[in-house]
Amino acid sequence: MLTALEVVTIVITGLMVGVEFSVAFVMNPIFTALPEDSGQLGRAHGGRMLGAVMPVWYIGSLILTAAWAVAGWGQDGAGLVVTAGALLIVSVLMSVLLLVPINNRGKTWTPENRPADWKQQMKRWDSYHYARVAVIIAAFTLLVVARA
């Protein structure tokens, strides 16, 4: 049973990392390269779509990691799993405190109502997102190493 929990946790967390990596290094650069209105509209739509699913994914990954830590307590790699869980907590806090407020504004913007500094706000979001991606990659790596 523990093996199944470990594999499910790694897969779910790994998929989340892949999506967030793709947002940072594929989707947002594509949006940035589009003509102004298209890029901003793409980011707004992405903010609405991913803003609805990512909280569940982040919390789900954290819950699975916590369950693994409890079920595997005392086994090899338990410290790595606990550390991965701590990093996932950091990623949730970063999301709530830094990224969500910007995303909540950005997902409502249209070319007619966006603020003059919308590009600066998106750059700030991108910077925070790069840091969050590094945190969740580290958490994912620890989970994989703990399973090895």
Rank of each mutant, 00 (worst) to 15 (best):
Q40V: 01
V100N: 13
L98R: 09
I59K: 02
S38I: 04
V11R: 03
L2Q: 07
G47H: 02
R124E: 14
G72F: 00
A84G: 05
I63N: 00
E20M: 12
S61F: 11
K119A: 10
G14R: 01
A139W: 10
H129P: 09
V100K: 11
E6S: 12
A24T: 09
R124H: 12
G79M: 02
L50K: 01
M122C: 11
S61E: 09
L97P: 00
I12Y: 15
R147M: 13
P115D: 12
L62Q: 12
K123W: 02
V145R: 10
N113D: 15
A84P: 05
S22V: 12
R124Q: 14
A148H: 07
N104R: 14
G47F: 03
S22H: 06
E20N: 14
V81C: 04
D126Y: 15
V82A: 11
A44I: 01
N104C: 08
G18V: 00
L5R: 09
A78Q: 10
A146Y: 06
D117M: 01
V17D: 04
G72C: 09
R105D: 13
K119V: 05
D117W: 01
D126S: 12
V23A: 10
I137E: 00
D126G: 04
V81E: 02
L99M: 15
A44E: 00
E112F: 09
I102A: 05
E112C: 08
P35A: 10
V53M: 11
V81W: 00
D76H: 09
S95K: 11
R43Y: 00
P35L: 07
S127A: 15
W125K: 02
A146N: 08
L41N: 09
M27E: 06
R43I: 04
T9C: 14
I102F: 05
A78N: 12
G42T: 01
V53Y: 08
S127R: 14
A78M: 05
S38A: 14
I63D: 05
G42P: 04
V7Y: 11
V53R: 09
G60K: 02
V70L: 12
V19T: 06
N28E: 11
A71D: 04
L142M: 15
A131T: 12
R132E: 01
S127C: 12
A138P: 13
P115H: 10
N103A: 08
D76A: 12
G14V: 03
A116G: 02
Y58P: 05
V135K: 05
Y58D: 11
V8K: 00
W73P: 01
N104G: 13
G39T: 00
L15R: 02
L15E: 04
V135C: 14
V82Y: 05
S22F: 15
F21W: 13
V23Q: 07
P111Q: 06
T108G: 15
G39R: 04
M94C: 12
I30S: 13
K119R: 13
Y130C: 06
V19C: 07
L87R: 01
N113R: 01
E20Y: 08
V19S: 04
I102D: 01
D117P: 03
D126E: 14
A84Y: 00
S61H: 10
A131K: 06
Y130H: 14
P35S: 15
V100Q: 06
S61N: 06
V90I: 14
I63G: 08
I30M: 13
F31Q: 01
A52L: 15
Y128H: 13
A52Q: 11
A52T: 14
I63M: 13
W57T: 01
